[in-house]
Amino acid sequence: MGPILTLLAQRIALSLLLLLMVSALIFAGTLILPGDVAQSILGQSATPEALANLRAELGLNEPAISRYFSWLSGIFHGDLGTALTSGQDIAASIGSRLSNTLFLAFWAALISVPLAIFLGLLSVRFKDRWPDKLISAVTLTSISIPEFLIGYVLMYLIAVKLGWFSSVAMINDGMSLGQKLNAIALPVMVLTLVVLAHMMRMTRAAILNVMQSAYIETAELKGLSGLDVIRKHAFPNAIAPIVNVVMLNLAYLVVGVVVIEVVFVYPGMGQYLVDHVAKRDVPVVQACGLIFAAVYIGLNMIADIVSILANPRLRHPK
């Protein structure tokens, strides 16, 4: 198990390093680029005194490096700073919104992952026949459609024309689980459609890749049934690529969620981020950006860790 632990430690260390660099990049991206935060908050007509005061208040006169480190140490202590526009504590505002977003993403993942794997298997089973062609045509189309269009089409057809669900997805703590699920039914449906196409296409490719291996032919020539070939020989080798596909697409879901929250006016992180980008509320944008990046990096890390763990060459070294 020696080399595998080293590899895992390396991979986790790499992710942490990456996250640190990303935090620096996000910090630098919002401060070094042209455009003065104080100016954008107060507008073009602000007096020089007001600007100077605000700059001092925001600590803009200190060197960037020291501001970065005080920001970073704040994050380690759970202090994300205060929002410029409302003066509220960012960590407190994000808390409930993050759990709302995770709630939405969780249900979307719960539906889309098994469905994508099932459809991927189906189209491998019927490769080059009509079910495969149909699935691939539908996925090609849905990859080409912007998320918000899928959102509005479903909203138009299901919420407005059929009147089944509400067109806005408001949830609050007072609602029961059933009420919450009812409220997020439409956004979950849209998110599922959005990630399904990519996930299914990649699953299909991953399984096909395994099925073309020579050891699958060996298994067939042993007289095993089609099911046994898949269960005993294809599946153990396909787990790693499939988990990889799933993780990469869950990372993709993180981005999809931003747009979908805006479409359905859902009180989550995405909506919060977009609102504050428009208001140029830099501390909020930094905090949200960092959280999204952390989730994204974390999912990619899990994908790599699964690949390492599933590799027989690493698990059983010579």
Binding site: L18, M21, V22, L25, I26, G29, T30, L31, L33, P34, G35, V37, S40, A251, V254, V255, V258, V259, L273, V274, H276, V277, R280, D281, V282, V285, Q286, C288, G289, F292, A293, Y296, I297, N300
Partner: peptide, 21 residues
């Protein structure tokens, strides 16, 4: 490039556009 790609493109664009005209 690895570093840039470790942040979702949309999120990164939003961060940048929050300070750029």
């Amino acid at each position: 490039v690895d570093l840039l790609m470790s942040i979702p493109t949309l999120i990164f664009a939003l961060v940048v556009l929050s300070v750029m005209p």
